[in-house]
C-alpha cells in the first residue's frame, strides 16, 4: 500500500460531500469551486472535478445555468437542487456520526499508546 494512494482515496471519498456543502448557501461556477477545494487542499489536480460535477448533475443533485461574464465566455453556475439538498443533509449526518466514531476510536488508540 502506498500512503499517497490511501490519502488520495480518503479525499476522494468525501469530495462529493465537500462539493455539495460548498454549494449549499450560494451558487458557484466551476473555477470558484475549484479554487475553494484547492485552498482547502481537498484536491491536487483539477481534472478529477469535471467528471464528478457532471455525474452529480446527471444524478439530479446539481443543476446549472449559464451566466454572462465580464471577461471571457459565459460561465457555468452550479446550484444545489432539492434532491441535492436532501442528499447533502443525509451525508452531513453520516459524516458527523463518522467523525465522532473515528475521533473516539483514534483517541482511545492514541491514549493507549501513550
Amino acid at each position: 500500500m502506498k500512503i499517497e494512494n490511501t490519502k488520495a482515496q480518503m479525499r476522494k471519498g468525501v469530495l462529493e460531500y465537500c462539493i455539495l456543502s460548498l454549494l449549499k448557501d450560494n451558487d458557484a461556477y466551476t473555477t470558484e469551486i475549484l479554487a475553494q477545494l484547492k485552498e482547502a487542499k481537498m484536491i491536487v489536480v483539477e481534472g478529477t472535478i469535471y467528471p464528478l460535477l457532471t455525474r452529480l448533475k446527471n444524478a439530479g443533485l446539481l443543476a446549472y445555468r449559464w451566466e454572462e461574464s465580464t471577461s471571457g465566455p459565459p460561465r457555468k453556475y452550479y446550484t444545489l437542487t432539492k434532491n441535492g439538498n436532501n442528499f447533502l443533509n443525509e451525508l452531513h449526518n453520516t459524516w458527523t456520526e463518522l467523525t465522532t466514531a473515528v475521533d473516539n476510536l483514534t483517541k482511545e488508540k492514541t491514549n493507549e499508546n501513550e
Partner: peptide, 18 residues
C-alpha cells in the same frame, strides 16, 4: 500540471487507487 494527468480524470476507482 494544474489539470492533472489524463488518468486522473477517470472516475473508475479500481483503475486509480487500490
Amino acid at each position: 500540471s494544474i489539470m492533472g494527468q489524463p488518468e486522473d480524470y477517470s472516475m473508475e476507482e479500481e483503475s486509480n487507487d487500490y
